[in-house]
Design a protein around this nucleic acid. Structure first.
Length: 138
DNA sequence: ATTCTGACTTGCT
DNA sequence: AAGCAAGCCAGAA
């Protein structure tokens, strides 16, 4: 995984505002590069420095193994939830998920501009790298 | 080239 | 709502 790609993904994730969320696939689509699994890879290995809980499965379920911690952030940010999150909070039992239909981030024109810039920078660096690789083959 | 793996997604029970 | 199969994208062996 190119570092440029990782940085681009993290840059997009940082734009997602508190109280909202997007799916892994959404991020890939906004970035115009890679797929949901690539975003998942980046988040699992480099997501620690960004609001990782705002990126979830398309179903609205929090990232594997981080449900409890993520739930605290959702409650804090007022992220719309579905299901038995309160009993999950008390007993650890019960299933819940983010109401992605309501919570899904709708980027403003300004946000789209920023995303375009990020995507464009990524394209440039990847193209440059591919040219360099060709040179190495000879 | 082939196969496996994964913080994924969609469609079908 | 939950489980499963297949599809998907990149990287690693």
């Amino acid at each position: 995984m190119r570092n440029e790609y990782v940085q681009a993904v993290l840059a997009v994730v940082r734009l997602v505002p508190a109280g909202s969320a997007v799916s892994y696939g959404d991020v890939a689509e906004l970035l115009g590069s890679g797929g949901p699994r690539q975003i998942g890879y980046v988040m699992s290995h480099h997501g620690g420095s960004v609001p990782w809980w705002r990126i979830l499965k398309a179903s609205g379920h929090a990232p594997e193994g981080h449900e409890a911690e993520a739930l605290l952030f959702y409650l804090e940010e007022g992220t719309p939830l579905l299901g038995a999150f309160s009993s999950y909070l008390r007993t650890g039992e019960g299933r819940w998920r983010v109401d992605l239909n309501t919570a899904r981030w709708a980027p403003t024109d300004n946000d789209f501009d920023r995303i375009d810039i990020i995507a464009e920078q990524l394209e440039r660096s990847l193209h440059r790298l591919s040219v360099a690789d060709d040179g190495m083959i000879l």
